[in-house]
Amino acid sequence: MNQNSQQLDAVVIGAGQAGLAAGYHLARAKLRFEILEQSPRVGDGWRRRWESLRLFTPAQHDGLPGLPFPAARNTYPGKEEFAAYLENYAAHFGLPVRTGVRVDAVTAAGSGFAVDTARGTVRARNVIVAAGANVFPRIPNAAAGLDPAISQLHSSHYRGPAEIPDGEVLVVGAGTSGAEIALELSAGHRVLLSGRPTPHIPDPLLRYAGGAYWRFIHSVLTLHTPVGRKVAATFHQRGAPLIRISPKDLDRAGVVRMPRFTGTAEGRPVFDGGASAEVRTVIWATGFRPDLDWVHGPERAPSGWPQTTRGVVPGVPGLYFVGLPFQYALTSGLIGGVGRDAAYVVRDLAQRVQEPSVVAAVPEPRNGDREDGGRGKAEHAGGTHTGP
């Protein structure tokens, strides 16, 4: 796949929901682009998750631009359904996805970029990195102090109860992923769940006022508003809100809730306050850290995430990101939020291509999807981004 003689308008790295949303807008803008995906099939990132995983948002908010998700409102699709949707989305719009292509480096070269892969170098005037936020498992350094007899795995490697040894299980991390794993395992294990519970979104709120709730997290909790900036400042320190299950569900299932994990003592996990526990297995539902060393140029925040202005990288013209948590709003890291961010990024990219007809082909967001919440004022807010 050596394309040194042909410079594309854009290369998108990653064919998950963020990369496909970017591809949709690039196609509408009639730009020459490719989407590079390292997995053998579109959607494989979802297929590798645990067997019982369902999306954390209801079906009406699980569609990408131009193609609603084909499921009833207020249902929560499974991972296989969503993986199939992504594969169908790419085919439906004829997006130029190349699977099985791992990108090793992105480097500024002349008036564009060199995208180095095992199959050769692709040249492009612009690059959109949509490689996903769930990359390297984040595991506390103190995990090394646990007794070697204790089985350890990150939530990204969890597949189901059948793979967990008999005996007591500690799940560290009380966000949605940790809570769902703890609840599933409680049927056959004594389970401890460590961490400060994240806020619970009551089912009636989603069922009867879900539209208002979505508008709040999509159009109010943004980097444009004081309350949104306040939430963004600590967003990476907490797990996702609990949806579908509540702390009461955990209590009814017999899950023992523990304080925050703080370290180890004599090979056992220790919690805030000094208590310890003897367990057979520890599952780390502690999130992820970015793997972006292969992207040369952007400045990084202490968290490791790139500094961007709504996905546009200051000081590196032509380099963009889509799919960063809280890239612009709380919904930026959710399926239903990436389309707006992708539209913003592609509009800036099309202006760089300097073809007036191309710029006109990238539509302004509809009023309900305006980046500024519909107030008609353009806002370019920067931020540090973390979290799913």
Rank of each mutant, 00 (worst) to 15 (best):
I139N: 03
P356S: 13
E51N: 12
P259A: 04
S52T: 14
P302D: 11
V191Y: 04
G211W: 03
D203P: 13
K377I: 15
G287K: 10
R196S: 11
G304H: 04
R260G: 02
G267N: 13
P77H: 07
A105H: 04
D372H: 12
L146I: 10
R257K: 15
H92W: 03
Y344Q: 01
H224M: 00
G382F: 04
P298G: 05
L193G: 10
A109V: 03
P317T: 05
H218M: 01
L330E: 07
P204L: 05
S357H: 11
G94P: 13
T121I: 14
A10H: 09
A15Q: 01
A162M: 05
A18R: 02
L183Q: 07
G188N: 11
P241G: 02
V169S: 03
A277L: 12
A277W: 07
H200F: 14
T107Y: 00
R119K: 08
D291E: 15
F271I: 08
D249W: 04
R47T: 00
G376S: 08
D62P: 03
P137A: 08
P96A: 05
I181M: 07
G145K: 11
R310P: 01
G274F: 09
Q237T: 15
A233S: 14
I243V: 15
V362L: 03
G100Y: 08
I35T: 06
G173Q: 10
P40N: 10
D104R: 12
D104Q: 13
D203Q: 11
D147T: 06
I335F: 04
G160D: 02
S303D: 15
E180G: 00
G211K: 02
A182V: 12
G23R: 11
P204Y: 08
P356G: 10
A343D: 03
D291R: 10
G14T: 05
K248M: 05
R366L: 14
A301G: 07
A149D: 13
S194G: 14
A91F: 01
P317F: 00
S276V: 08
P388K: 00
T309S: 05
V127P: 08
V313A: 08
D348M: 02
D249G: 07
N126Y: 01
D166T: 14
G287I: 09
G373E: 10
I150P: 07
R375N: 09
G387W: 10
E184R: 09
E168G: 06
A142G: 04
D104T: 07
R347C: 06
A72S: 12
P77G: 12
R300C: 07
R310M: 12
P314D: 13
A209E: 14
P363F: 09
P356V: 13
S177P: 01
T262S: 12
V358E: 02
V316M: 09
R289N: 00
G318V: 11
T222R: 15
A90Y: 04
S5F: 01
V135P: 00
T225E: 08
G63P: 09
R238S: 15
R229E: 07
T121W: 03
L319R: 03
L8E: 04
I201N: 01
E355R: 14
I245N: 06
P165G: 10
E184S: 04
D62K: 00
A329K: 11
P202N: 04
E266F: 04
